[in-house]
């Protein structure tokens, strides 16, 4: 049981046993969050920089909580208050931060490949906290941890991923992870939000009722308004009518279906409030598991002596 890499850039290059190592470690670290004193000295003296070029609540907060619980020193830089505003490039910012000797950089960026780019040019361990429409590995890991807790396994699960497949890095990371772990994935979204080639990864439909039929789990994707320059669908109301998850539609899935959403939710667009707050929803479990998964990633990348590569 080990994790042999120095970085976590995406799910695609990982082997199933690496994914299992991260999930098992997260499972055991979660207990620390329930202790009277929620802090262990494991990563004392390690420094982590959180470099966020895009807005984030959950991911950023849970990385910060995980760092504090494991006693790593961390600082968070968001573009709104940094020299990025003055035109500094990603590489220059990263190099200057590296001159302060951090052990890890957690990066979120609007461009796909930003984390890989930093990994090529930096000494530190790089963790991808979301790069453009490419990958968001820690989100897929926390989704998998939640599913495994609720269903006892990942293998053989029928998972429907529904919504804005075009812009979703969460979908890509989840498709990789779930198929590697033996789950069966079906994808569903409006035709304008299905990128070409996606059907090589998993079966795709534009009919939500078909996608939900007999599903063990439903992963809803956020309609990413900020990334939509053109008109991908006529109106939010129409989106909700055709692709929104309603109580009626949930009934097509298995009785014990669980519903995940990576947040932030657009209530009344991709998901109805009664569903988001309903008995099937595991959305808040996802958030707690997010801290555990990020603790596991920090521990596996920074605990132990410097890895070779």
């Amino acid at each position: 049981m080990s994790y042999p890499h120095r970085h976590l850039l995406g799910i695609e290059p990982l082997l199933p046993e690496h994914i299992k190592t991260i999930l098992d470690t997260a499972e055991r670290l979660r207990e620390v969050l329930d202790r009277p004193i929620k802090k262990v000295p494991t990563l004392r003296g390690r420094t982590v920089v959180n470099l966020f070029y895009e807005a984030s609540t959950r991911t950023r907060a849970s990385f910060e909580v995980a760092q504090k619980v494991l006693s790593a020193d961390s600082l968070t830089i968001t573009t709104a208050t940094s020299s990025v505003q003055k035109g500094e490039t990603l590489l220059d910012t990263a190099r200057n931060l590296e001159a302060m000797n951090p052990d890890m950089i957690v990066v979120r960026h609007a461009s796909s490949g930003a984390a890989h780019f930093l990994a090529r040019h930096c000494r530190s361990s790089i963790v991808n906290a979301g790069d453009g429409a490419h990958e968001h590995p820690t989100q897929a890991l926390l989704d998998a941890l939640t599913l495994r807790q609720k269903k006892g396994r990942l293998e053989g699960l029928e998972v429907a991923i529904v919504g804005d497949l075009m812009h979703s890095r969460v979908a890509r990371s989840n498709i990789w992870l779930l198929t590697k772990m033996g789950a069966r994935v079906r994808l569903c979204g409006p035709p304008t939000l299905i990128p070409p080639g996606l059907d090589h990864l998993a079966p795709v439909t534009t009919n939500i009722d078909e996608a939900l039929e007999g599903a063990d789990a439903i992963m809803m994707l956020r309609v990413q308004m900020e990334r939509m320059a053109g008109g991908f669908f006529p109106s939010l109301r129409e989106y909700h009518q055709r692709y929104g998850l309603t109580v009626e539609r949930v009934k097509r899935a298995k009785k014990d279906v669980v519903i995940l959403h990576p947040g932030p939710m657009n209530r009344g667009v991709e998901i109805a409030s009664e569903v988001a707050d309903g008995p099937w929803s595991v959305i808040l479990d996802q958030v707690t598991n997010g801290v555990a998964v990020r603790m596991a990633v920090l521990y596996l990348l920074l605990g132990g002596a410097e890895a070779a590569a």
């Binding site: 080990s2 470690t25 670290l29 596996l300 132990g304 002596a305």
Partner: peptide, 10 residues
């Protein structure tokens, strides 16, 4: 922890 090779299993 900073000197042992790899990561001890939790």
């Amino acid at each position: 922890l900073t000197t042992v090779a790899g990561q001890p299993v939790i």
